[in-house]
């Protein structure tokens, strides 16, 4: 069976994860940060699906987990966008550099 090896897929998901993390830590725009978070979540999804396929081919647990993560990502996006709208109304900006009120 001519198959793509698991390590290739894991390499893609790891790359995706660190791209998302880089975006999360360097972008100042909240929407871009949200997109980065989605990237991270999707890298996890790829992991789940890949491991399910390669290690436990007769089961569907990994796929179910992926479906849950997609649902939760949708809900999280809704909450995050609500926060952003509220932030924008207060600060006229969605730059995270300006939201540093909560400190010592």
């Amino acid at each position: 069976m001519n198959q793509i090896p698991l390590t290739h897929i894991l390499f893609v998901s790891t790359a995706l994860f660190f791209i998302g993390m880089y975006g999360l830590l360097t972008r100042r725009n909240l929407i871009t940060m949200l997109m980065s978070v989605e990237l991270i979540l999707n890298s996890v999804n790829i992991n789940f699906v890949a491991f399910n396929r390669y290690l436990y081919a007769d089961k569907l647990d990994g796929v179910f987990f992926t479906l849950f993560i997609i649902t939760i990502a949708a809900a999280e996006a809704a909450v995050a966008i609500a926060i952003m709208i509220h932030l924008y109304r207060n600060l006229n900006s969605i730059d995270v550099e300006q939201t540093d009120e909560m400190k010592f």
Binding site: L24, L25, V96, T99, E101, K103
Partner: peptide
């Protein structure tokens, strides 16, 4: 160590990771 609590979200994310 109080400087660590900067109020900046991305610092926290960095600590977390």
């Amino acid at each position: 160590i109080k400087g660590m609590q900067s109020g900046k979200m991305q610092d926290y994310a960095l600590y977390f990771f």
